[in-house]
Amino acid sequence: MRIFAALIAFNAGLALASPAVSHEFWIEPEAYQISADGTVQGILVNGEDFEGTTLAYLPLRFDRFTIASGMRQANVENRIGATPALDVAPFAEGLHVASYQSRMSVIGYAEWEKFLKFANHKDFEDIEARHDARGLPREDFREGYWRFAKTLVGVGTSAGRDFRTGLAVEFVALDNPYTDDLAEGLRVQLYVLDDLKADGQVELFEKAPDGTVEVTLHRTDADGIATLPVKAGHSYLVDHVYLREPRAELAEEADIAWETLWAALTFGVPE
């Protein structure tokens, strides 16, 4: 059933399967902190350098979309085609975590160099040797990709802690960006398929109040933790991409050579 659902998502989005789709996907709140009587709102964005195209609320494109705070969690419900896709009342004061898991989409590579550039950018180790060892063609092959995005929104006091929401690849913020002292940076811990990801590349997109974006690369330690430098008044997108060989059944059904699982976390830092 999962493969069938993935293929439905692919067929529905075939017209969108272009190189641009392989860039980052994230949830970007209208405001990272709101009052206790406010509304948690955020757009789904596909793009690069922390700028991109807004996507509507389309249940055919995701397997789960939730909002949680403390011990409470609910599915994000909205009108089909609505923007912003995230538009819900908060549970109460405190830190709220929105989490999104896409269905699989597919992108094709006509040229090896395009895939190699992407693979090098995202730090896929020994990709040429791994690709060739499996007897894969160096042109006209396809990749299936999944999006796993989170955002942190502070409501009222903004008190609380981020936590694992069950995404296949997931960042967990070990510090609360709205209440903790971030003079030494904000720590994130990276999980990949239920394991801590040591020595993983973490790409950090920092957006200043004037809209300019700076990109830096970081790495996780033996415990999967990266400490990220942050500034007051800036917003952040944290990104990691995991590459794996697809299961034989999925590879055959979807005609893909590789799977990529994209983790994203967004948050802001108060003035």
Rank of each mutant, 00 (worst) to 15 (best):
L136T: 01
G268H: 07
G47Q: 01
M71N: 13
W262D: 01
R61I: 05
D87V: 12
E245N: 10
V192M: 05
I127P: 01
A85H: 15
P229I: 11
V172H: 09
L167S: 02
T227F: 10
A263H: 09
G185M: 04
E214G: 07
L250I: 04
R138M: 08
F25V: 06
F267L: 03
P229S: 14
I8R: 02
T179C: 15
A31W: 01
A129T: 08
S18H: 13
Y145A: 04
I67H: 12
L44D: 14
W26A: 05
L237K: 13
L261E: 03
G211I: 00
P177E: 14
G70E: 01
R64N: 11
V192P: 00
G160K: 08
T66V: 11
L16F: 06
L152I: 09
L86R: 13
Q73T: 13
V155S: 04
H96T: 10
N75W: 12
A12L: 07
R103E: 00
A56D: 04
A110G: 11
E48P: 00
F141M: 02
V21G: 05
E93W: 06
E206D: 15
E203R: 15
V213Q: 05
Q201P: 00
T266N: 01
F124I: 09
G135Q: 04
A232F: 04
T53K: 07
T54H: 15
V188F: 07
E252D: 14
P270W: 00
D126Q: 10
L86N: 10
A263E: 05
G108R: 12
G185R: 06
A251I: 00
I3H: 07
I225Y: 02
I80G: 01
A17T: 07
L243W: 14
G135P: 04
Y178I: 07
V202K: 08
D180F: 02
W26V: 10
W112C: 02
K231L: 13
S105F: 00
V97Q: 13
L86G: 06
R72W: 04
E125N: 03
W26H: 07
D126S: 12
F4T: 05
D199E: 15
L250M: 09
A133D: 14
L228I: 15
N75G: 05
V241P: 03
L116Q: 14
R79M: 12
I80K: 13
G52H: 09
A149D: 14
N120V: 01
E184K: 08
R61P: 00
E111I: 08
Y145W: 06
P90G: 09
T227L: 06
D199Y: 07
D239G: 06
E24I: 10
P177S: 12
R130T: 03
F65R: 04
A82T: 06
S105Q: 04
A92G: 06
I107W: 05
E48Y: 12
D199S: 05
L95E: 00
R164F: 09
V238C: 13
E252Q: 13
V153T: 11
I43M: 12
A31F: 01
V188Y: 12
D87S: 15
P246Q: 03
D221Y: 12
S235W: 03
R161N: 12
A89F: 06
A168D: 15
Q33E: 14
V88G: 07
L7N: 03
E93D: 11
T216K: 14
F50S: 09
A20H: 13
W146Q: 10
P209K: 03
Q101R: 15
F141E: 05
D181A: 08
V76S: 08
L217S: 08
E113K: 13
A68D: 08
Y191T: 15
Y242L: 11
R103M: 02
T83I: 15
